[in-house]
Amino acid sequence: MAGLDDVFGDLFSGVDAVALFSPSGSYYERFTDLEDEDDDFELLVVGTENDVGADTFVELPLEFDNISDRIRFGLEGALDQDIIDDGDTLACATSVFSDDIDTVSRVRADADSRTGIYDLFARSRADPEVVKSVLELAIELGQKGQKGKPVGALFVVGDAGKVMNKSRPLSYNPFEKSHVHVGDPIVDVMLKEFSRLDGAFVISDAGKIVSAYRYLEPSAEGVDIPKGLGARHMAGGAITRDTNAIAIVLSESDGLVRAFKAGEIILEVDPEAY
């Protein structure tokens, strides 16, 4: 099988860094031993949790099912933390079919073509934890719907003061004088029930649910979202261009969860895939 080694060896020969996605402890140690012998490459670990106690670690906000999203997030995180440089070649080892690492992909880090998927979490006004909880909530809502029927929802996260000034109430705010934060287990149930209401949820930087039932009225000039998406997506996209908020939208028609920042779609996930 020496021939195969030669051919597949091209995948990882001369890489500047090796990125391990959620490796097991023993797997990681084999790499650290290798790194000690010759330090030609950088070793970094990407995952939802730093189980192996790696020195260079990029945290994934959720276990992306889509491999390219997963790798792109890891790459942009590593670029952002200056672990790797623009133009570096990486060997990304990740798992596709089993829980263990079974796939190696050779990727070139390109700072120009970044999608901002890392910025969505790490560089938003809202806390990364809050963005993560809202995204998880939207995904869960997309999976289960409201009493079995598909629902749509629009969450505007962060910069709540400005968002409130660029929107108006459609009816009485059920969250008036309440102090509930996303991430509390009881709140998920509340938000699911309230998802029947029309309008947007407004959530503050620290995760406080400021209001439901908001009609967003940003100017929609220059918002570029794919044609065919409805008013909910347009409103969500437009408010992120006018303010520093991000919008997480669950589509009622196709059931996908999309995240907007600065007027652009950053992330698209299918709740059914989780």
Binding site: A160, G161, K177, S204, V210
Partner: peptide, 25 residues
């Protein structure tokens, strides 16, 4: 927090500082 004399989104002035309330904890 209990009485909410002002809330997120209100324009207020405290001392010399004027602006929009973003967060009350």
């Amino acid at each position: 927090l209990l009485n909410q004399p002002y809330g997120i989104g209100d324009r207020v002035r405290v001392g010399d500082q004027t602006g929009i309330v973003q967060e009350v904890d």
